[in-house]
Design a protein around this nucleic acid. Structure first.
Lengths: 233, 233
DNA sequence: GTTGCTTGGATTGCATACAAAGAAGCGTTG
DNA sequence: CAACGCTTCTTTGTATGCAATCCAAGCAAC
């Protein structure tokens, strides 16, 4: 990492996305500075950046706090994301895939296919799938060639706490369905079925959103806490 | 404004969006600090925020520069924005309008109707229309009740230099068409015509995007400059 | 003429001291 | 007992000095 500011920004972002801090946690500048062994200056730079990214909330003269997301917020985010992923698939289907991107997707699908053979859903499998899933979606985004769309989707996928939850609750059946979705989307794209690619992708994201919201609600109901103070990262 | 940091952020944002700096202009911290009569600290805060918002580009140890947008970028942004505005109209049509929002939209449309009677397209009329247009779209966004969608659309509409150009090239015919679009979208929404509302809104934005891209290309071709140094705001 | 190195100036990165705003506790007063 | 105002303490906001980095100009060697 080039500068401390960037390094801190990345560390903090990861911590927030990974769920190290509960929603609403206030982030104290000096505590963070001590914990990360830098001065307040790079900390403040990082905080302002993350606030602009929408991960933190800022109140003048009061500081930064981890943004809280109610189930309704997650719902709103997924409505948008589904739409954008649909758009993305449509664009790619229209333009066609480059050899490189086709190769990448093919590889992802092959590895996913292999993953179907494991017996049970462990945390390790969960991490493997998360990686494959990310690669699939990221490749599509890159293939769309639309930088702005890429930025929007990145923001729509960066939600505090979510990484903690993501895929932990999967089972082999859900995995099979998700993999099948990916295969179908890929087929629609290579077959130039523009409309089908769009609606498949949209539906794919929408459905996974529904599952996430469900689990988010459960988490929400058993988590009364607010305004806790942050501990060191 | 509560803090200097926020004040500077807003001033700078306005300056960038308003086209005070050419694309690629490097923003020197001490110059800005002098010009705005504050120290470098709030300037740096503002710059990092605006970079996270996507208005500036940051290079470690080298500073911030106004992001440049090629016509192709504008095209990409408008593809996304059209899709999102379509989604927004669909959501509103699904949920129905509250009395307040219906009233606001009605008022906007009435004022737009009146604006049709002016004889020629002056800068003053342009500003009036910009206000009406913003109010129409912002009201729809608010009526959607989706904060994330609102954020995405805000980002899709905040493009450096664009405010300078926007609507200046309109004529009475274009105005009539835009106003008619708004009326039809409103009618579709109040009539619960969900699909129609979506495609009308999408098409409305897409078309205006086409015009903007056209004018952007013209601007681009007669603007060879790069890397100019910033003057005081 | 071109390539590579060196050096000086300009600019950003970071730490720290001090100022100012906000929040919590405490005592007073009705 | 409640409410108000004061005080004090915590935390953020700002300025500034110094260190680190980068960039360009000049020079030397090929």
């Amino acid at each position: 990492m080039a500068t401390r500011g960037l390094s801190v920004t990345n560390k903090l972002r990861e911590a927030v996305l990974g769920g190290d801090y509960a929603g609403g946690t206030r982030l104290n500048e000096v505590d963070l500075a001590d914990a990360l062994a830098v001065s307040r200056t790079p900390i403040r730079a990082a905080l302002s950046t993350l606030a602009a990214e929408g991960l933190l909330e800022y109140r003048p003269n009061s500081g930064y706090a981890v943004k809280t997301f109610a189930a309704k917020d997650i719902e709103g985010i997924y409505v948008v994301r589904a739409n954008l992923e649909g758009l993305c698939a449509r664009l790619v289907a229209q333009q066609g895939l480059s050899d490189v991107h086709r190769g990448l997707l093919h590889k992802v699908l092959a590895e996913s296919e292999e993953l179907q053979n494991v017996e049970s859903w462990t945390d390790e499998v969960s991490d493997l799938w998360r990686d494959l899933n990310d690669r699939f979606h990221n490749t599509l985004i890159e293939a769309s060639g639309n930088a702005h769309l890429a930025m929007m989707l990145r923001k729509s996928r960066a939600i505090p706490l979510l990484n903690q939850l993501k895929f932990r609750w999967f089972d082999m059946g859900t995995l099979a369905r998700a993999h099948d979705d990916h295969s179908q989307i890929f087929a629609a794209i290579t077959g130039g079925q523009v409309v089908r690619a769009e609606s498949l992708a949209e539906e794919h994201v929408y459905r996974s959103g529904q599952r996430i919201i469900e689990h988010w609600r459960k988490m929400d109901s058993r988590k009364p806490a607010g305004g806790t103070k942050a501990r060191a990262a």
